[in-house]
Amino acid sequence: MRLRIPPGWWLGGLLLLAVAMVPLFLFTNTYNRGLLVLIVIYAIAGLSLDYIMGEMGQFSFGHAAFWGFGAYVSAKLALDLGISPWIGFLAAPAAAGLVGLLIGYIALRRTRNLELAIVTLGFGVLAWTVALRWRPVTGGPSGLRQVPPPSLFGWEIRSELAYFYFALLLLLGIVFLLSRLRTSRFGRGVRSIHENEDLAKSIGVAATKYYVLAFSFACALVGFSGALYAHHFRFVNPNLLGLDYMFIFLIVVLVGGTGTLWGPVMGAAIFVLVSEWLRALQEYRFVIFGVVLLLVVLFMPIGVFPALQKVAGRIRGRNDEDTDGAPAGDDLALEAEKAR
């Protein structure tokens, strides 16, 4: 097997390198460096949601609940049992993945598309209710505080810069993992179900099994992102499971572009930086996000990253829609093409 660097990686890699250099020059104070950590965490969450949206062609309204769940699991282990955050980073995705497996098994055997969106919404708000009400375990509305940061050989990764590079490294690993997964037998199986479920079944793809595993994988990934959040920002509360974060992840995925690996990374950077830039507008910025999401769905349904790729392709004298070697087969992109 020849190791070929897929075309998207050049653009994405450059982007990442640029992002990695930024804190040394531009983001010099603690607060701004905290934003960079947030970008990486949202990027991982966005990538996981995009696995459901872009690869499976489905939608989960309960995705933020798995994010919050991962955060709670890791925080709880560290606070109550004194378990190292490093184990928490493994336990959170494991727990979220298991719950995702269970819920995916229950939901995906029977529902797709709209029904799936609403079943997952139901599970999500149920989880949120439990986090809010089960005071002895979850700490109720105020959540849990004083979540410890991870430490490496006795040195706590407390500084924003260290945590940023740590998380960035993980993000890079996750993007690589995802790119391999997409072209693996499993990944192609999932994509074939997305294209046409009956056809995929007819050639022997165990559709429901693949979908359940893919769903569980996405849940594990977002649970991991949640654990990263908990140990950096050092608190968890029920809002993490709520629809506000769901909305943020949606913006991250849609603005960046579904079905592309680097899209959600770019979407996360755009979201965090723009929302910071709009901070002066206070509550108005959320109204603006709503407008932005509507406009993006309306005018740029393929997202920013694929649009940039197109421009880059045109500059290099090509006009193919090569997105990371995988066919640009997601609904939004296809329909955007059809609509033209």
Partner: peptide
Amino acid sequence: GHSELVVILSTVALSFM
């Protein structure tokens, strides 16, 4: 004309606004 999910997203955006 798009997939069912797109209308969900656009009305989610409206509700957020």
